[in-house]
Each structure stands twice: as structure tokens, then as C-alpha cells.
């Protein structure tokens, strides 16, 4: 135990005497300061009540109070202590829960770091053999083409396609782990302008497609501009991708208010999905569509969720097969 309670007793007693002698604001501030120091040193309200009782007894001593007065003071203090005991218990509970939470948070942060380090090294070490698989398959196709029949060529092309697909998966994983390692910086972000720029880029990538973008103006949010750009890129290019089977399509970006919170959304009238699988959408490597229908690694929405989680927000989806999909997100808890 440290010697703080002894110091507190002395300081409290002199401060109380000073206050009772001359009810000055300064003396009250001293009381506040003592209370602050007491909590910092891990003392509870019951300790303060005990110190208070002792100090009060000391204050009364010079005027030689009657035994009766002293007993009254003691009894009153005991009564007060009993009454504030629940506060003390709640406070202690909070403190313990807080300490446990802190420990858990540290553990979680360490685990996350380990996982990211793992993802990083796995990603790099996995790329080298993939390069060899793809490269030597290509060498066979180029140097030994005359010795291969059509099926042999087909098989080698499959090997190459598969290794390149795995390369893209690894890149997606790397990107995901990189995103979470970077520190988040919140600032006002013009989501409308970001969405507009992404829409332009998508339009340029396939100018022959007939897609109408409807982007609400003036939608802003407080968040990390780089991460929010990634969110909108993923959601809008998903919408772009999943409307590709329709002759014309509409992709919408906007925001509504729900329970005092801004809810942003990206909506399309494309392939949609079965609501029964809505919960699966946001897991890494989850795909609801066949590889032949729509390309993709299954990392985009996992990335979106991770970023929204980092912002303390929520993301969810609504959709129906062939009637489009809508993705909603908030950025505040």
C-alpha cells in the first residue's frame, strides 16, 4: 500500500478546516482536487467517507464537543457511508470491467497484428511458386507447342488461368491486410464527389455500356478519405459488374436519415442476390455468383465491412434475384 491515504487524511483535514473557517471558493476547489487525486490513487467513496469522518472529529475537538455530538457525527458518517456504498460498488465494477476490456483490446490488437504479419508473409511466399507455375506453363506452351495436342494446350491454359486467379486472390488479401494496418484519419469527406469520380472512371472503362448513374449531390461524411474511397469503389464497381448482363441499367448513390443517423446507399437494378444469403455477402472469399457469371475474388465486400467496422458504423444489404441489390452503410456508432 502506498502512503497516499495518510497524506490524504492530513490534506483533507486541513482543507476542511480552512473551508469551515472561511467558506471560500478556493477551498472548495481544493476539495475537488483532493477527490481527483483520491480516485487516481484507486481510493473509493467509502475511503473518502472515512477520511471525512475523521477530519470532522478533528475539527470539533478544539471546541471540546460533548461525547454526544461526537457520537452523532460518527453515526451520521456511518449512515452516509452505508448510503453511498452502492455507488462505490458500481464504480468498482466499472473499473474492473474497464480493466478487463482494456486487456481484451490489447490482446485483440496483438492478434490482429500477428494475423496481418502472417497474411503478409504468406502472400509474398505464395507468389513465388505461382510465378513458377505460370511461367513454366507458358514456357511449355511457347517452346513445346508442336508436341502438344489441343487438349494439352487447354490443360496448360487452365493451369495458367488458375495460377493467375490465385495471384489475384493473394493481391486482394494483401490489400485487405494493408488497409487494416494503416492508421485511420477522420476528416470531412465529400462522398458525392468521390462517387461521381468513380462513376466517370467506370464509364470510361466500358464506354459501350448503357448505364445511368444517379448520384445525389452534397452527401458528406466524417471519415478517412482513402478508406471511404475504397468503400465506394468496391460498392460502385460491384453495381457496375452485376448490371453487366442487362442491356440498360441504373446505379444510384445517395443518403437517407434513419434514427438521426445518415445512411448512405449504393443501389442497382442488376443481378441481385437471394436475401437468404445476405449474411454471407460480407465474408472474405464468399461469392454468391458462379465464376462464369461474374468475375471476382470475393474480397471486395469483406474489405468494405472491415472499413465500415473501423469507422464504428454498420453495413447491410438488401436484394432480390434479378431485381437488383442495395448496400447501406453508416459511419457512426
Amino acid at each position: 500500500m502506498n502512503s497516499y491515504p495518510v497524506t490524504l487524511k492530513q490534506s483533507y483535514s486541513s482543507a476542511l478546516q480552512a473551508y469551515l473557517a472561511d467558506a471560500q471558493e478556493a477551498a472548495l476547489m481544493r476539495a475537488y482536487e483532493l477527490g481527483r487525486q483520491a480516485t487516481e490513487n484507486g481510493l473509493g467513496v467509502l475511503d473518502i467517507a472515512a477520511v471525512h469522518q475523521e477530519a470532522l472529529t478533528q475539527v470539533l475537538r478544539p471546541s471540546s464537543p460533548s461525547q454526544e455530538t461526537l457520537q452523532t457525527v460518527q453515526a451520521a458518517s456511518k449512515f452516509l457511508a452505508e448510503c453511498i456504498a452502492p455507488f462505490e460498488m458500481t464504480h468498482r465494477g466499472f473499473r474492473e470491467a474497464n480493466a478487463a476490456l482494456k486487456q481484451q483490446a490489447t490482446q485483440l490488437a496483438n492478434l490482429n497484428k500477428e494475423l496481418d504479419a502472417f497474411a503478409y508473409s504468406v502472400s509474398h511466399d505464395l507468389r513465388a511458386p505461382l510465378r513458377a507455375i505460370d511461367g513454366f506453363s507458358q514456357a511449355l506452351l511457347e517452346d513445346y507447342l508442336d508436341k502438344l495436342d489441343a487438349q494439352g494446350v487447354d490443360y496448360l491454359n487452365r493451369v495458367r488461368n488458375a495460377s493467375q486467379a490465385m495471384g489475384r486472390l493473394i493481391d486482394g488479401l494483401l490489400k485487405l491486410s494493408r488497409l487494416t494496418r494503416a492508421e485511420m484519419r477522420r476528416q470531412p469527406v465529400d462522398l458525392s464527389a468521390t462517387a461521381q469520380a468513380i462513376a466517370e472512371a467506370l464509364r470510361k472503362s466500358q464506354p459501350e455500356r448503357r448505364v445511368a448513374f444517379s448520384i445525389a449531390g452534397g452527401v458528406t461524411a466524417n471519415g478517412d478519405p482513402v478508406l471511404l474511397q475504397v468503400v465506394l469503389e468496391n460498392l460502385l464497381s460491384n453495381a457496375w459488374k452485376f448490371t453487366s448482363r442487362h442491356a440498360t441499367a441504373t446505379i444510384e448513390f445517395g443518403a437517407t436519415w434513419q434514427d438521426g443517423k445518415q445512411v448512405c446507399f449504393v443501389r442497382d437494378d442488376g443481378a441481385g442476390f437471394e436475401m437468404a444469403y445476405a449474411g454471407k455477402l460480407f465474408g472474405a472469399f464468399q461469392r454468391l455468383h458462379g465464376r462464369n457469371d461474374f468475375e471476382g475474388t470475393g474480397i471486395g465486400l469483406a474489405t468494405v465491412r472491415r472499413i465500415i467496422d473501423q469507422h464504428g458504423g454498420r453495413v447491410w444489404a438488401e436484394g432480390a434475384v434479378d431485381r437488383g441489390a442495395a448496400f447501406y452503410f453508416t459511419l457512426e456508432p
Binding site: R127, L130, R131, D134, G135, S137, Q138, A139, R160, S163, Q164, M166, G167
Partner: peptide, 9 residues
């Protein structure tokens, strides 16, 4: 960066 795809490499 060495790409996985040999053609790109």
C-alpha cells in the same frame, strides 16, 4: 514488382 502472370513479367 514481379507479376505472377509471365506475359506481364
Amino acid at each position: 514488382r514481379k507479376p505472377v502472370d509471365f506475359d506481364q513479367f
